[in-house]
Every structure is written in C-alpha cells, then in structure tokens.
Design a protein around this nucleic acid. Sequence first.
DNA 1: CTGTAGATCGTCT
DNA 2: GACGATCTACAGA
Length: 198
Amino acid sequence: MPGKIERSFYLREDVVAIARDLVGKHLFTRYDGHLTGGMISETEAYNGIVDRASHAYNGRRTGRTEVMFREGGVAYIYLCYGIHSLFNIVTNRSGVPHAVLIRAIVPTHGVALMLDRCGRKKRERDFGYGPGIVSRALGIHYSDTGTDLLGDRIWLEDRSPGIDGRDIQMNKRIGVDYAGEDADLPYRFTLSGTGKKE
DNA sequence: CTGTAGATCGTCT
DNA sequence: GACGATCTACAGA
C-alpha cells in the first residue's frame, strides 16, 4: 500500500516537529475487514522525561508507560476517566519516551461505521473532534496499546502533500493544568478551520 | 448560547 | 483510596 508512513518518520528526535508534521496525514484502522480512517487535524506533543504533562515525566516507568520507552512507530493507548481510550503515537528511539496524542481527525473512510460506533444518527460538522471520539470512531481500544503502526491494523499514510505550513496553528495543550509551567508550552497543532468552533 | 455535574475504572500511592 | 492528556446531558439564561 503506497504512502504508508515508514519507520524513519517516527524515529526522529524532535517530537514537537513530528506532531506538526502529523497534521494532514491520514490515520487508518482495519478491524474485521472494516476500513475506517480520516485526516489528522489536531495533535499534541508529549516531550518525555522533561515534560511535566507527560506520563513519563522524570523517567516514570511503570506497567502503563513501559510502551512509551519502545522504539518509535507503536501505539500508546491508555484509559482516561475510566471511559475513554486515548490514542498516542510513540516516537524516537528505544529508551526515549516521546509520544504524540491524536486529538482530532476529519473522517474520510468508513464514515457510516464510525458514526455507528459513536452512537450518532447523523454527521455533525465537528464529528471527529476530541481524543476520546477519535479512538471510539476508529474502533481503537486501550487493549490495542503496543500495536505496531507499520502493520495492517492501525497505520498512517501520507495522502495530503499539499498542506501549507501557514494553515497549521500552534497553541498550548488542553487539559494539562496539573503540569505547572509546562502547561503553557506551545505543543498543540491544529489545522485551520477544523477546530471545534467556527 | 454558557456552565456544570456525573459517568466509570485502570493505575499508582 | 484518589485521580485523571474527556464527553455528554441537562439546566438555566
């Protein structure tokens, strides 16, 4: 399948640059032969052991965060608020726990199935916005953590070479007030016009 | 339109 | 035993 993003993309040093580059890429899943996917429209970078907002801050290495220390190109998915599976992409080489949270997609493939998974009757304009919704729509469960993103279950493709850097907005991350000054770092990237409002 | 309460459970203390 | 990298429903204006 041409266009699948290769390992080297995930192995780069700069997780913030990777988060920016992921905006406009496509994320796909295939469960039981059912293809669903969309264009990534919002991401957040989590910069490893020096980032108070990261689960791996200060080298915290537990059963849950262990997968973040693996070589880039695998999924880190964890349960939030007992309800939501949040999907992250592990980056950098083995031992460096960098990750990028996918906060929103613009659904493109298997939209009817995604609506059904989310219990929606019709497609609202902002369907696909929100990290919990992204996983639910794509069928991703936190038990999928560790899945290799070069396999045929969850993967990424480069289908939008025309994304203009000027269309990507940079802002502070959401829901990380506990992180002190690091909560103000401009590690969130949004494609213009795809936010929750407007 | 805005604000807020409640859901719900794996993980870490 | 407390707490989330959240979402929805519902109340009030």
